[in-house]
Design a protein around this nucleic acid. Sequence first.
DNA 1: ACAAAATGTGAGTAATCACTTACAATTTAT
DNA 2: ATAAATTGTAAGTGATTACTCACATTTTGT
Lengths: 217, 217
Amino acid sequence: MPSKNLIDEMIAQAKISKKQTDKQQKVVDAAIKIFAEKGFANTSTSEIAEEAGVAEATIFRHYGTKDNLLLSITLPFLKDLIPRMAEELFSELMSQSPATFEQFIRGLLKNRIEFIKENKEIFQVLVKEVMYREEFKQELKPLVSEILVQHFIKIIEEFKERGELIEKASPIILRMFVTFLFGYITSRFILLTDNFVTDEEAELDEVIDFIMNGLKK
Amino acid sequence: MPSKNLIDEMIAQAKISKKQTDKQQKVVDAAIKIFAEKGFANTSTSEIAEEAGVAEATIFRHYGTKDNLLLSITLPFLKDLIPRMAEELFSELMSQSPATFEQFIRGLLKNRIEFIKENKEIFQVLVKEVMYREEFKQELKPLVSEILVQHFIKIIEEFKERGELIEKASPIILRMFVTFLFGYITSRFILLTDNFVTDEEAELDEVIDFIMNGLKK
DNA sequence: ACAAAATGTGAGTAATCACTTACAATTTAT
DNA sequence: ATAAATTGTAAGTGATTACTCACATTTTGT
């Protein structure tokens, strides 16, 4: 199972370390669902309690504050599981040592899209709250710079040595790639939540072709 | 003045058509500022009143509801001024008939970045609320499909005929271009509001080079 | 078996929310 | 000049908010 659902993993992990209750589980599930749909600020604790089939006081028994509920949902996802999965992904991808950069980004994109699809809701909660909360940006920064940048630069330089990539500074290559990836993910999973693209395989080909060759004839 | 501040224009326009009051002006300015910073749901009307130096009831005298205040700020921006500016921009760009597609997107990007910078706050309010409010998506859809798509397809086809662009279906070319542009704008103006790129001119060159030629050697 | 600890909840609480009302001040029309 | 209309506000309103508390139930350790 290369791309296991992270929420399940998160919950499983939490269960071992701090043995979550049935009702706690239901609270978390309900909170993720409603936060993703309406946003943190637009969701009341009474609404979460109702959706979870639990007394409102139960939420505060376990999480203390509404803010802490949000952090309990999102921080483990950010701090533990994303970095672990990222490293697994990269080592897996590179151990298969893809012949071309194209093959590499094809594997990467497929994997990431699957990953985001499976964790769409918690991903939506995160993206929305990052815009409002400096604390989330602060949590994200090291994650991005250490995990993402560190790994990517290495890979970019490997393929540059092979003569597959343009001879530009690796951070610039990375920035262009990430900017496109970011636009791709946000436009398809955050903004246009309803009508997702029909033929994914065909779209993936176009995306890769654009990243590699651009728009010039 | 090719790229005049739209908020000023909006306010000026509103002043003529419905003669805005001094206090109304202050309310709108304060609301845009706080909405952009903290988001609509996290901002109370009492906070807006205080920032504007106005009684809370004054807001409701003029706008009736908090929701209507948001719409009074954002809808004119969406419905009147963006389309007008878009058409002006395109006719201006094309009347100078840029020699190459590269020149065209250079002009476009410069212009749009300037525009977004000048209207950064109202732009942030819009992007944040589009994620939560179906009504905003509904307002945006025709705007995007009529103004943006319509104009762009024409231009893409012009440059395809000139043999400057790859021979792909125009909607696909457009989709790749817009996806990158969207990622560029959101990552720089919504997420990383603080440390914007240092050398814009150099970055613009890299962006254009990526769009045209991709990452392959 | 049973005490202690952990979990769950109904019924609150004070604070804050968007919004209203009654009335005063100002502007506009004649 | 003055009546009418518009604009502004202090002081509320009920509703909802996140959160607390006293107490019941269940689970756990011995």
